[in-house]
Amino acid sequence: MDETGKELVLALYDYQEKSPREVTMKKGDILTLLNSTNKDWWKVEVNDRQGFVPAAYVKKL
């Protein structure tokens, strides 16, 4: 969790967005987890953008 109590995830792999609903991340990025109710796609925030990334590409910290 960060200082505001939000849950964080670590990008395990690079991911290039394939639609406007997704976000690009690089391996090693720390992202804010917004929603993990879907087992396949998690909603995150990175670089002031919100979108989805494959759940298998990130790990909760």
Rank of each mutant, 00 (worst) to 15 (best):
E45L: 09
P54R: 03
L10A: 06
Y57T: 08
E3D: 14
T37H: 10
W41F: 06
G5H: 14
V23G: 02
W42E: 01
L8V: 08
M25Y: 02
Q50G: 06
F52Y: 15
A55P: 06
K6A: 10
V46A: 15
G51R: 02
S36I: 06
K27Q: 09
V46Y: 13
G5A: 14
E22G: 12
K43R: 10
Q50E: 10
L61P: 03
K27A: 12
P20D: 11
P54C: 04
Y57C: 13
I30A: 02
R49F: 05
A11R: 01
Y13M: 10
W42Q: 01
Y15F: 07
D29G: 04
K43D: 03
P54S: 01
T4M: 12
G51Y: 04
K39W: 07
A11H: 00
S36L: 05
L8N: 05
E7K: 09
W42H: 03
G5I: 13
V58K: 00
K26T: 09
K26A: 08
K43W: 13
L10S: 04
M25Q: 01
L33C: 07
L8F: 14
Y13T: 08
D14E: 05
E17S: 15
D40I: 14
F52D: 04
K27F: 05
Q16W: 14
V44W: 00
S19F: 06
E7D: 10
M25I: 15
N38M: 09
T37L: 08
L12S: 03
L8Q: 09
V44H: 00
S19Q: 08
Y57W: 06
A56W: 09
W42N: 02
V53H: 00
D40N: 12
W42I: 05
Y57L: 15
Y57K: 08
D2V: 15
D2L: 14
K60I: 12
G51D: 01
P54E: 02
E17C: 12
G28K: 02
D29M: 15
K60H: 08
E45M: 11
D48T: 09
Q50W: 07
V46E: 04
K26L: 08
Q16I: 15
G51A: 03
P20V: 09
E7S: 11
T37K: 10
V44Y: 00
K18V: 08
N35G: 07
Y13K: 13
T4Y: 13
E17T: 08
Y57D: 04
K6R: 14
K26R: 12
D29I: 04
Y13N: 08
R21T: 13
V23H: 03
R49I: 07
A55V: 06
V44R: 00
T37Y: 09
G28F: 04
K26V: 09
K6T: 13
L33F: 03
M1E: 13
Q50N: 07
G28M: 03
E3A: 14
V44Q: 00
V58Q: 01
K26E: 06
V53Y: 00
K39M: 09
K60Y: 09
L33M: 03
W41A: 02
R21D: 12
D29C: 07
V9H: 03
D14N: 07
A11N: 01
V53L: 02
T32I: 15
N47Q: 11
G5Q: 13
V58N: 00
K6D: 09
T32W: 13
L33K: 01
S36D: 15
D14H: 05
V58I: 08
Y57F: 12
P54L: 04
D29H: 05
T37S: 14
D48V: 06
A11K: 01
N38G: 09
L12V: 07
T4R: 12
L34R: 04
Y13S: 08
L61T: 06
T32C: 10
N35E: 15
N35Y: 06
M1S: 13
T32L: 15
L61Q: 05
S36C: 12
D48F: 09
E45P: 00
K26S: 08
V46M: 15
D29E: 11
L12A: 04
G28R: 02
L31W: 02
G28Y: 05
E17V: 05
A56L: 09
T4K: 14
V46R: 15
V23P: 01
T24G: 09
A11T: 03
R49D: 04
S36M: 09
K39Y: 07
E3S: 12
E22C: 06
S19G: 12
R49C: 06
E3F: 10
E3I: 14
L34M: 06
E7L: 10
Q50M: 10
E7N: 10
M1R: 11
L12Q: 04
L34F: 04
L12G: 02
W41N: 01
L10G: 02
K27P: 03
L10R: 09
I30M: 06
R21C: 15
I30R: 05
D40L: 11
D48A: 10
W41S: 02
F52T: 03
D29V: 04
G28Q: 02
D14G: 06
T24L: 02
G28S: 03
D2C: 15
D48S: 10
E45Q: 14
V23A: 05
L61C: 12
L61S: 04
T37D: 15
G51L: 04
L33Q: 00
D40A: 10
L12H: 03
G28I: 01
V44D: 00
N38I: 05
N35A: 08
P20I: 09
R21G: 15
K27G: 05
T4A: 13
V53A: 02
D40K: 12
N35V: 08
V44L: 04
E22M: 05
V23Q: 03
V23E: 01
Y15C: 03
D40Y: 15
W42Y: 06
K59M: 14
L10Y: 10
D2H: 14
L34Q: 03
V46I: 15
K27D: 02
N35C: 11
V53G: 00
K59S: 10
L31P: 02
T4V: 12
A55F: 02
L12T: 04
K39V: 10
L10P: 00
D2N: 13
E7G: 09
I30E: 03
K26P: 00
Q16Y: 15
E45S: 10
N35M: 08
E7P: 09
V9Q: 00
Y15E: 01
V44I: 07
K18N: 10
I30V: 11
W41L: 03
S36N: 07
Q50L: 06
K18P: 04
N47D: 15
L34K: 05
K59G: 08
V53M: 01
S19N: 11
E3M: 14
K60S: 08
D14Y: 04
M1W: 13
L33Y: 02
D48G: 15
